[in-house]
């Protein structure tokens, strides 16, 4: 009979513990955030009417909605990509492929959060008409 003894680290794995907590709290917060978003974008307003001008004039002209959307972006973004990381670690057992996919997931998450945050911060308060042609 073979016995494998795992090395016992003296410290707790703070990252995994933190992410577990993050998933729980962000999950709770995402319920009102997502339903609010859904109500505004799909129930109260029709997607047929929503345009760049509408977003700038009706929503993002008020900084509170930008903060609301920023919360949605960051909580949903990190929640979703951490879920992807967990799924990768559950199902991809090859060490090198696991690492490549994990790095890819982090890179994708950074891009999504960066582009979203840039849009929220840099979008003008009045619609800008882009030159045509």
């Amino acid at each position: 009979m073979t016995t494998t003894t795992k090395s016992v680290s003296q410290r707790d794995n703070k990252f995994e513990t933190f992410m577990w907590r993050y998933m729980r709290w962000s999950g709770v917060l995402l319920v009102p955030l997502v339903f609010g978003h859904f109500a505004i974008m799909h129930v109260i307003n029709s997607v047929a009417d929503i345009s760049y001008e509408w977003v700038i004039t009706q929503r993002w002209s008020f900084v509170g909605w930008r903060i609301y959307d920023a919360f949605l972006l960051w909580f949903a973004g990190i929640h979703g990509f951490n879920g992807l990381r967990i799924a990768i670690n559950d199902y991809v057992h090859g060490e090198s492929l696991n690492r490549v996919l994990n790095i890819l997931a982090v890179v994708l998450m950074v891009i999504v959060l960066f582009v979203g945050t840039a849009a929220l911060v840099l979008a003008p308060t009045t619609p800008v008409t882009l030159p045509t042609g």
Binding site: V8, D12, K14
Partner: peptide, 15 residues
């Protein structure tokens, strides 16, 4: 504390 350290690893309780 030692047991909780083992179980707080990626392959511990969080799975």
């Amino acid at each position: 504390a030692d047991r909780l350290a083992v179980l707080s690893e990626e392959n511990g309780v969080w799975r």
